[in-house]
Design a protein around this nucleic acid. Structure first.
Lengths: 347, 347
DNA sequence: TTGAAAGCGCTAACAT
DNA sequence: ATGTTAGCGCTTTCAA
């Protein structure tokens, strides 16, 4: 159906190699360049990357395995990555695994069959077992957002411990001592780190830890609402709450809203992520904001470096010494709002 | 590097065709099935879809060209589509074109080089010129969310005219007559239809049209804020506003929030999309909600039907009569909130 | 049911 | 600088 290089060769009277060379930046006589370009135009020729990939053993595609495409965090990070990679000629195959380990594993196998050159993963399985087979084929995987037990990958994470600590300190400075925390399941390292940050902050600030102030649920809006509801009745003396993720923030606000509980008069809150959302709610919410743009850029950068290294390797024959794995820890920033009340004067 | 069918053949002592037949649901003796499965296990064999695609002229991938991956609407629709397609063995290559026509065109070319079997497009170019070349190769394109001038594609849209009309009627019933509208650029058919719905509702309800109540900007948060600011000063007697999209809704609320304008006391608002967001803001916002799930499902369904038809066609040789293009119009629903004040009693 | 062989569109030696 | 040719890993006739 579609025109092939052979057709271009016939049309121009040139050899196949010349045509191929034209597309691969080789030296082609200006006269012939023109001829080729004319033929391309005439025959509506489009390079067949599938065939090229078969020959070169590179698909010029990467995979992205994520827990939820509808999460703003995932979408924003992917958006940055896709942009950077496509500008280097790489396509991105997205696989949403719905936070399910089985589907995550299947997604990686799916991507392997398509011979993607690399995989970005926001892992559900923090052991990273789903990627073992893939990396053992010598291809790069970059982990995003979740610290993984296995050090055999590059990773770009946010210092979640520090993030929560920052929030806690803010609340402390504003006189809060009975502070609640709503976080997701502790199988997820990000959530784990957030809880750890909470405990650590308590220790540093001399706040006695009260486990009943900690609600552990899941990464869902429902959990945020449920958590808020629970904490409000369980700890009536609680003056502030920190949400352990964006969806939890949303759920938290839904519950406060449903119960018409005034923020920050009755309770102070610090949310997570999405500055626009924080500005749109009333009162403007204080948040711990993850640097999504940086995360995406760093992850893409690392991947592109590895992809490039892989391309160079082959010609040399000998294994160049491998780049050491990178583990980046980016910092979340605190964006102030009006959702935290200073209760110092009340003492 | 990776094991090939040849390796399986050698390992099992069988012929290539038998191996291939095994993977394609052909008849293989149980004894040999076992042998093959053992060999697959042993050699960590993974089918090479690239090679298969070259031969079969199907990539088992579809492309998705969208204006902004970070838009919740896009992400949600894609999430549904990806799920449905992958369960049928298709991968999804996502191309975010940042609402840019040039990049949109490039994205389609990019996808053509990868020989995707179909393309989903939430088009920037409503002429659909970016898809011309692609569909002329006989492959299906499904347009989402934006009515396109060319009828030569399938499309799944929302009746935006009706949506805004519904909102207008609600406001009318609550006594509002001076109603503002903030919409995106009129090069976009969705925005166009929304404005049309506004005008039509005015006509039906006997509200005189005042162009100064209509703010036309772009599909950005900034435009929502700017629009709100403008309308508030330009039309101090305005009692209600309808937002023409979700991002505009967010911008609108940011501005109201910044100016500490009480909703719905001073002004009533109706937003667009994202029920969770609507519930999280105070007071709970009334919205016109697009059926994202249905949109994705219908689009995927149409695509899968066409993909299947294309597979059947070849064996028959003769062109089966083409399925007629479908143009679906789904309805947005009104979800009530507390952001609309009944001002009838004040008369 | 299975095997042998041709070829999908391209790249990369190698030869010219 | 350009042409010739041999595969990349698979599917698919065609024979056996």
């Amino acid at each position: 159906m579609a025109a092939t290089m052979k057709d271009l060769a016939r049309e121009t009277g040139l050899g196949l190699a010349t045509i191929s060379s034209y597309f691969n930046g080789g030296n082609v006589r200006p006269k012939n360049r023109e001829k080729i370009e004319k033929a391309i135009e005439k025959l509506h020729f489009e390079l067949n990357e599938t065939a090229r990939g078969l020959k070169t053993n590179r698909s010029m595609m990467v995979g992205a395995v994520i827990p939820e495409l509808t999460s703003a965090f995932c979408a924003q990070v992917l958006s940055v990555i896709e942009d950077r990679l496509r500008s280097h000629g790489y396509g991105m195959l997205v696989c949403d695994c719905r936070s399910d380990r089985e589907r995550e594993k299947e997604a990686v196998e799916f991507l392997m069959r398509r011979r993607v050159d690399g995989i970005f993963s926001i892992p559900v399985d923090i052991k990273g077992t789903h990627l073992k087979q893939f990396v053992s084929s010598g291809k790069p995987a970059v982990i995003i957002d979740r610290e993984i037990d296995d050090p055999g990958f590059d990773s770009v994470c946010v210092d979640n411990r520090l993030a929560i600590e920052t929030g806690m300190r803010r609340l402390y400075e504003n006189g809060h001592r009975r502070i609640g925390l709503i976080v997701g399941e502790q199988t997820n390292n990000a959530s784990k780190q957030r809880r750890k940050g909470y405990l650590q902050a308590c220790a540093q600030l001399g706040i006695p830890v009260d486990e009943s102030l900690i609600y552990i649920g899941s990464e869902t809006v429902e959990c945020g609402a449920e958590g808020m509801r629970t904490l409000l009745t369980r700890c009536p003396d609680m003056t502030a709450v920190i949400a352990g993720s964006h969806v939890i923030t949303v759920g938290m606000l839904i519950e406060l809203n449903a119960q018409s509980i005034p923020v920050p008069e009755r309770i102070s809150v610090i949310g997570f992520d999405d500055p626009q959302f924080a500005q749109a709610v009333h009162p403007r919410m204080a948040i711990l904001n993850q640097p999504v743009r940086d995360i995406g850029e760093k992850a893409a950068e690392i991947m592109l470096a590895r992809l490039q290294a892989a391309r160079k390797k082959e010609p040399e024959g000998q294994e160049t010494q491998p780049l050491p794995y990178q583990h980046l820890w980016l910092k979340a920033s605190f964006i102030n709002g009006k959702s935290v009340k200073n209760i110092n004067e009340q003492d």
